[in-house]
């Protein structure tokens, strides 16, 4: 897919809570086509400690409204600068980058989309995309506490939601991999994004039960388009760039 270097316009900066916000972006021209799992490299201006762009997952795309969403967690000064953007500001992005999820099985397949923390971001786009194709989805979303369970109203448009929190403040108490749905239901495919320990636990469950499973990795990168070779992960094909060969990998390829 052709990559674009674009100045997009901030339409809305929506605060979800003290840690998370959604940047709703638009453009004068039509937004390029994007696929779930893909990401953008966002340039951070006016942050002396942020030298490189930041890779951020595409959270949602609405082509009719020419709108693109990025779900951002405030972790450092760069994301803090992003949180200060106002409607009408410009944001420079390179997109779309990376590969996409493999749609496995037919429309009757039981699909489970597992997201943890800010890793839920690509799961919303994947859910809406699958929904458009006629698939029904199940979402298993986890967080430390209730305030880390994000965009539940959006997810509910595309399928059934199951939740876990580590402190038990919402949904079942524990990690996503401890949710009862995994014991009660046989899924045909699992897609996941979140903290590495969570994805490894999901991958172990899928492998044990012989379920098709793809994970979306989040390695640190400098360029995002295969030039710097910094974001590699070890696979059955050796070291490959997460930005071009991924970020989505079938668990059978990964040697993590």
């Amino acid at each position: 897919m052709k990559k674009f270097l674009l100045d997009l316009i901030v339409k809305e900066n929506k605060t979800l809570n003290s840690q998370y916000f959604i940047l709703k972006l638009t453009a004068h021209d039509r937004l390029p086509e994007m696929l779930p799992g893909q990401f953008a490299e966002v340039r951070i201006d006016n942050s002396p400690t942020t030298f490189l762009r930041r890779p951020i997952s595409i959270n949602f795309v609405n082509y009719e409204q020419n709108e693109l969403w990025l779900l951002v967690q405030m972790v450092g000064d760069g994301t803090r600068k992003l949180s200060q953007l106002k409607a009408g500001d410009l944001l420079n992005l390179i997109l779309p980058l990376g590969n996409t999820f493999t749609i496995s099985g037919d429309k009757y397949s039981r699909l489970l989309l597992i997201g943890g923390g800010v890793g839920i971001a690509p799961m919303l786009f994947l859910g809406s995309y699958l929904n458009d194709l006629g698939y029904s989805c199940n979402f298993l979303l986890g967080g430390r506490s209730e305030s880390n369970l994000l965009q539940l109203d959006e997810f509910s448009k595309y399928g059934q939601i199951f939740t876990t929190t580590e402190d038990g403040s919402s949904g079942e108490k524990g990690f996503v991999t401890q949710h009862s749905i995994l014991e009660n239901t046989r899924f045909d495919a699992i897609y996941t994004c979140g903290p590495t320990p969570m994805m490894k636990a999901v991958a172990a469950y899928a492998e044990k039960n012989n379920i098709f499973c793809e994970v979306s990795l989040e390695n640190t990168m400098a360029c995002g388009f295969g030039a710097c070779l910094c974001c590699v992960t070890d696979t059955t094909d050796g070291h490959v760039c997460v930005c071009t060969e991924g970020p989505v990998f079938n668990i059978t390829k990964l040697k993590w």
């Binding site: 002396p48 400690t49 942020t50 030298f51 490189l52 390695n219 640190t220 990168m221 400098a222 710097c228 070779l229 910094c230 974001c231 590699v232 992960t233 070890d234 070291h239």
Partner: peptide
């Protein structure tokens, strides 16, 4: 090449160990 992590952002620059 070397194992991941191969890159660290620094003030006004970056370290690489590709």
């Amino acid at each position: 090449g070397n194992a991941y992590p191969r890159m660290a952002e620094t003030p006004s620059g970056m370290l690489n160990a590709v």
